[in-house]
Amino acid sequence: MSQWQGLDEFVAIATAGSFSGGAKLLGTSTTRISRVIVQLEARLQAQLFDRTTRSVKLTDTGRAILDQCRRILAERDDILASVTAQGEPRGELRVTCSTTMGERYVAPLLRRFAMQHPDLSVELDLTNRVVDLVGEGYDLAIRTGQMPDSGLIRTRVGSRALLTCAAPAYLKTAPPLESVDQLKDHACLLGSASNWHFKDAQGQALEFKPSGRWRCNNGNGVLEAAIAGMGVCQLPEFYVLPALRSSELVEVLGGFRPAEEPIWAVYPQRRHLLPKVRGAVSLLKRDLAAAIAQP
């Protein structure tokens, strides 16, 4: 008997919350799946589930090894997928992306990708936290800006402009704003970035440390404050383009607009040949920039 036998059954029961549900996920019988779990527990000399007539719950041991077992099974599926003749995306694709970009652009693209490949499941985690891809078992991250040398593979899939904007009503009564230095006389609306970026007439990068009485770590919160006339903001273009088109905001310091920031697809080296990763990166590289540019 293989020492690995029973891991599929263990994960299926934990996922479904019952032996019958786990059996249904695997297309087998409750009797068989129960027998396999008893054998696995005997080999481990530990109980994985607390069973009653009404419920099945993971024991402390079961909870401790569940994520590891899921990663083992995912790695197995990845290996099999990488050597299939068809090279079709399959298995589970775990992706992390910042919240707003993920909601607006990445989620629709990956949803289409999943619909095109019925053997693929997608988990998209939208968070502004920098995730440890290897340690937390992710296949792919979408990140922006300059990337440190982390040993991860990166592919540029797009770019984004940073625009400095304010409401016309604010500018009517505000001091002049014709140079970056004059920002010190203005109410700046602060987001998660500690510095704002610009470039001078020679194309050299400039930085300005903004200050003001409004700070929000969510871009929409900064955008709404700018539209309300509270001050000047600097945000990625996908936040402000609708407000610019409706004239709720106008761009300021356009002559000092910084170079566009790259958008990267980042993934561990061992996953870069997997069809599911290769296919997702190709889709993002082909369609993400166009999606961001749309009205």
Rank of each mutant, 00 (worst) to 15 (best):
V180T: 11
L26T: 06
D60H: 10
L44R: 13
G91C: 04
A265E: 09
D8T: 04
H272K: 12
D287T: 06
F49H: 12
I65L: 12
A290P: 03
R43M: 10
A74P: 02
D50I: 12
K276F: 01
W4G: 10
V157H: 01
G151V: 02
G231D: 00
A107G: 04
R43Q: 12
M147D: 06
L189G: 03
N217L: 13
K209F: 10
D287L: 09
G145E: 07
G21F: 03
Q116G: 10
V122E: 00
Q204E: 13
F256P: 05
L93A: 04
R111M: 13
R278N: 08
A226S: 13
R76G: 05
E224G: 05
A174Y: 04
F238K: 01
T61G: 04
G22T: 07
H197Y: 14
T28H: 05
D287N: 14
E88R: 14
R213Y: 05
G22D: 04
W196I: 01
D139A: 01
C188L: 15
I227A: 05
R70F: 02
A161C: 09
L26V: 09
M230C: 06
Y267I: 02
L177N: 08
A280V: 05
G279L: 06
L126A: 02
R90C: 11
I65N: 05
A265H: 02
L124T: 00
E103H: 12
L66I: 11
L206S: 12
Y138S: 01
H197C: 08
R112I: 06
A23F: 05
G158E: 07
A226Y: 11
E261H: 10
L177M: 11
M115G: 05
R215F: 07
R215Q: 13
L273D: 15
R112H: 13
A64F: 08
A174W: 06
T96N: 11
S282W: 08
F10Q: 11
R129A: 09
C97M: 06
R76L: 08
